[in-house]
Nucleic acid binder design. Sequence first.
DNA 1: TTCAAAAAATGACTTTAAGTCAAAAAATTA
DNA 2: TAATTTTTTGACTTAAAGTCATTTTTTGAA
Lengths: 233, 233
Amino acid sequence: MGTAERKEREREQKKELILDAAETLILQKGLDQLNMDEVAEQAEVSKGSLYLYFNNKTDLVLGICNKASKMLSEQISSVLTQDITGLEMVYKMGENYLNFVRSHPEYFRSMRFFDNLIDAEQLGESEYPSMCQNNMDTAFTSMVRAIQIGMQDGSINNSYNAKELAVMLWSTSHGMVNLAFLHQNSPHFELLEKNSIDVNSLFQEYLRLIGCGIATNAESIDDFKSKIETDSR
Amino acid sequence: MGTAERKEREREQKKELILDAAETLILQKGLDQLNMDEVAEQAEVSKGSLYLYFNNKTDLVLGICNKASKMLSEQISSVLTQDITGLEMVYKMGENYLNFVRSHPEYFRSMRFFDNLIDAEQLGESEYPSMCQNNMDTAFTSMVRAIQIGMQDGSINNSYNAKELAVMLWSTSHGMVNLAFLHQNSPHFELLEKNSIDVNSLFQEYLRLIGCGIATNAESIDDFKSKIETDSR
DNA sequence: TTCAAAAAATGACTTTAAGTCAAAAAATTA
DNA sequence: TAATTTTTTGACTTAAAGTCATTTTTTGAA
């Protein structure tokens, strides 16, 4: 009869509706100011309904984090299908990460929230943490794959362990991207202005720094640099 | 008469007492679970008294962050007085940062809290944010200084802009150190275990990666590597 | 179409934890 | 030593998360 299937679909749509409402509010006023009564109002449902679709406020924010990490993971993984060297893939992945954070600050906020939760709190019965984790694992695996491709095609120095290198690039780019986020979204954060540093050139320099570290040799570095310059135009 | 001075000193001691109590609780149960009633109990004062010494809960946590950032800043700046090359200073600063986070997870938690606040919330009348900011500025300036020393003594490639390089090293090491923090303090974080990666060797590799990127030439890199190996014994 | 049973939605209510303040206790000083 | 000022207290207020008895809507067999 298909009633159950339709119900399930409608349920998912309603969850999506609520998540959209919450995202709008987070974008407007930040995650700290997110209030369940307002989410209910924005989503045009009662407060009680929120709790039919999400266990609690944390669960709801993790629902957003799930969407966020899925989107990021897809954008990172998509690089693997391009016809470029492994080193270039690594570069593109970093660029995609930066672009993601810039265009979806509310998504990045939800991912920072998840990062804070994973330390500290017991996550209860929410199904989202493992989903978020899976999304991030997928993105990470794509990174490892790009590095392996680079070692194969000779663009990346194979004296590193691929996974170890992936973790390093992951963490360092997280640090860089976090800086870009603060610069864009926090009026109190003035480190870059005070030192008159431009985010774009900073990120280019980061890639250059990393590039010099992981590339096989001078030729592949030069090759890499010219690629970067071409891309940034 | 000196009564006013004594009162002021006693007031500072009481603030310290309350901060210590809060630190103990954060270490035990995490920042999310921090509860003002429990802080009052732990500090052996009434709840009302907490609000005589701190504007609100946020202010109290920022008080901890002030201590934390001061300690970190001192540890980083102390490297400047050592008789080593600029490149080695940069390395030592990174190492000090890592050690700080490992031995004071509750302090690092308070600094993450500050990081989240600076985006999002209006910080009210608290005097701490600017103090924390100053502490971090001091640490950052020490980093710039180390890089300038390295450019002078020939250990660091001077094709970079010193401040830009400092921001990069700051951000990337923040990312690395954050990873080490999660690994140590979050039972849910399994990225390193799953890929059987050791934090110490990862950090060594990070320094090697960065070292290769910023060092002047092969000789200084080799020199640097042998220094690192000596130190890790 | 009708209506009883099931499912979904509601909002007034409960709970929890931050934050307040009038009254009490302690310290100061004349 | 007693009036005055300063400090402390904990019961109270408030804000926001979370609950649940009741109402509304949907379903599907007669």
